[in-house]
Amino acid sequence: MENQDWNTRVKKNTKNLALWTLAWVLSMAIATFGPEFLWEGESILTVTAIILNALLGVGLILANIRHLNSLDDLQKKIQLEGMAMALGVGVVGGLSYSLLDTTNIIMQDAEISFLVILMSLTYLVSVLLGQKRYK
């Protein structure tokens, strides 16, 4: 019963996190493509979409904290290692990438989206490896 409650709590928080993530991603898409395809550059709508995106982002962060707090010791450790790896790779990789841009080694401008993708993939792979290591 106790663990069913714990399991239910973890599942609920995971589902909650997924919903906040989905809402944030959708609002990001609307804020990105809306000015061009939906409201043709209407500034007030663009600003509203960006504010909505930022507010949903705050909800996403809080949902992530709630989710992490509901996990058990081992799951927290796996998540912590995944986040540490993603942060490290993000800072080191991001600055190297920036240097490549500022020194004109690469022709195109450094895009923050590449950094986000790199950090997300690093986090995903680290968590999967952690799950395997402690199986």
């Binding site: 106790e2 058990d72 081992l74 799951q75």
Partner: peptide
């Protein structure tokens, strides 16, 4: 795991000395 409110994976990792 049910009695301790943790995952079965955690019990297994503790028993094996991995965690």
């Amino acid at each position: 795991a049910i009695k301790l409110e943790v995952s079965r994976q955690t019990i297994n990792a503790i028993e094996k000395g991995k965690f």
